[in-house]
Amino acid sequence: MTAHQDPRPQYFRALDQLEKLVAEITPDLLDRPTPCEEFTLRQLLGHIVGGIHRLAYMGEGGRAEDVVAATGVLPDDAWPAALQRARARVEAAWADDAKLNRPTFAPWGEVPGAAAVGGYVMEAVTHSWDVAQALGTGFPLDDALAHTALAIAEMVLPAERRGGEVPFAEVRLVAADADVHTRLAAWLGRAV
């Protein structure tokens, strides 16, 4: 994705996918482990919703560093509504096309708004895979979104730059014929 492309359509498609996945989650599944080893499914949902609010805050002119991570403390059945509210906020915050070229203070530094939204495409698509893995239902994930997310990941997260402040483990090896979702997860250091 170049700086000239508008990442919002892909981001909103990624949120569509997340909403469908979250609709499948029942309260008895919230304590399941996820491929993000530090998060249960409940904690991952808090991270996801918090990340959407963080992107909205950045679109509103705020700095990502000012947003404290979500704790995931919601009633068990409140996650779909929380995700919908976060989505409405982020759509409103990024509705103005001019914001795509405006300097934006993302978690990884000052970048054009389009680059900030593009980074969150990668995040939303990757966490969709995480949620799908935790559910174990064989939910069909969007291959085109995964290709976009993988291209972003390979561009902004080279294999050599891992550890320290980069919150991703080393790239994992996968079979040459692995599907794009598995390749994305492996590139971001998930055990696959």
Rank of each mutant, 00 (worst) to 15 (best):
E160W: 06
V166C: 10
L145G: 15
E154W: 00
D142L: 01
E170L: 12
E154S: 02
V166A: 11
R172M: 11
F168M: 07
L135Y: 10
G136E: 11
A169H: 13
R172K: 13
G136I: 09
E154H: 02
G138K: 11
P158M: 05
L150S: 12
R172S: 11
A151F: 00
G164R: 03
A144Y: 06
A159Y: 05
A144W: 04
A144V: 13
I152D: 11
D143R: 10
L157S: 06
T137Y: 08
D143Q: 13
R172T: 05
A169Q: 14
A149G: 01
F168W: 15
R161L: 12
A151I: 00
L150A: 07
P167K: 04
L145S: 04
V166N: 12
E165F: 00
E160Y: 00
I152H: 15
A134N: 03
L141T: 05
V166H: 12
H147G: 06
A151N: 06
P167A: 09
V171H: 13
A151C: 02
A146F: 07
P158W: 10
A169S: 15
A169C: 04
P140M: 08
V156P: 01
L135P: 03
E165V: 04
G138R: 14
D143Y: 03
L157T: 10
H147A: 09
L145N: 10
G163S: 11
V171S: 03
T148A: 14
E154F: 00
L150G: 06
E165G: 07
V171F: 08
M155Y: 13
P158V: 07
M155G: 01
R172N: 13
L135S: 00
A144T: 09
A146S: 15
T148K: 08
E160P: 02
G138F: 10
F139A: 15
G163N: 07
A159K: 13
V166Y: 08
R172Q: 15
A151V: 01
T137I: 08
R162E: 06
P167Y: 05
E170K: 15
F168T: 13
A159S: 14
A151G: 09
E165N: 11
R161C: 09
D143K: 14
P167T: 07
L157Y: 06
L135Q: 07
P140G: 07
V166T: 13
F139C: 12
P140T: 07
R172G: 09
G136P: 11
M155P: 00
G163D: 12
P158G: 03
H147K: 07
P140H: 01
L150T: 11
L150H: 10
A169R: 10
F168R: 11
V156D: 03
A144C: 01
R162Y: 05
E170A: 15
T148Y: 09
D143F: 01
A153G: 06
R172A: 08
L141N: 04
T148E: 08
G163T: 08
L145I: 04
G163Q: 05
P158F: 03
P158Y: 07
I152L: 13
L141H: 02
R162M: 07
T148N: 09
V171K: 15
R161V: 11
A159N: 00
D143L: 07
E160T: 12
P140I: 03
A153N: 03
V156K: 05
G164L: 01
D142C: 01
A159I: 04
V156G: 04
A153M: 00
T137M: 07
A159R: 15
E165I: 02
G138E: 12
A151S: 12
